[in-house]
Amino acid sequence: MAKKTQVSPALTAFGFAGLLVVLLPVVALLSRVPWSNLAAQLTSESSINAIRVSLVTSILAALISVVLGVPLAWYLARGPAAITKWLRPIVISPLVMPPTVAGLALLTLMGRNGLLGKFIYEQTGWAMPFTMAAVVLTGVFVGMPFLVLVVEAVFRQLPIELEEAAQTLGANPSKVFWRISFPLARGGVISGLVLAWARALGEFGATLTFAGSLPGVTRTLPMEVYVAMEVDPASAYSISAMLVVIAITVVFLLRSNLIKAFNGK
């Protein structure tokens, strides 16, 4: 039987402190939830509206992130280093951008007076701000970089010999990708999808700046919590608890995939 590695007390203490920093606020939040009244809180009109807006927009954003992000991650992993070395920081930049800045960036592109938005508005009379589409675009902007980060790492870890072997056997690049690379990277794609979805679900500042906050159209769950905080704290705690439970459940269900992704399988 293998001998268990001994962990130093100091390491355990720091690790435990780290656990407490994350665990205790969540425990405190859950302790304020009106458990007996929870169903009523979550089925109120404003809660249902926020749930619908959040679910629809975050799932759409996650799907778009996969469709656009996986090819982008593939290019970053396999493309010429001269290009990818400056392309990568640009693609990842929304990760470190303050949310309000991200919202402003989207507004200056797609607003009525935006770089692209002005042309669209003048031609069609339609502008993106204040629409559900704006919430989805914001979700893609903040969520896709997570997916690209994870999936590129997985692609990089794929043994290139497998792809080379397939090429020598006559497979064209498309076949190599769909038959060899993508199946092997599936775990990473799934965890990237989940991360992008969770990030889009939790976005607040950028969505508020770009899309506004109208119940049933653009008011997402985080915005609903913010608005409910003063007037209806019970509702705010209930929605927060729901978001926390969703987060923990999703990470738990995908734990094996996440481990595989980070191990490069």
């Binding site: 502008a127 701000p129 204040f130 700046t209 506004g212 906050s213 109208l214």
Partner: peptide, 20 residues
């Protein structure tokens, strides 16, 4: 009806100044 119900007056003003 308005197109958005903002959480504070500065963000309302911001939308006007941005000509959105």
């Amino acid at each position: 009806t308005p197109v958005s119900l903002e959480p504070d007056v500065k963000s309302v003003t911001g939308k006007l100044i941005a000509l959105e």
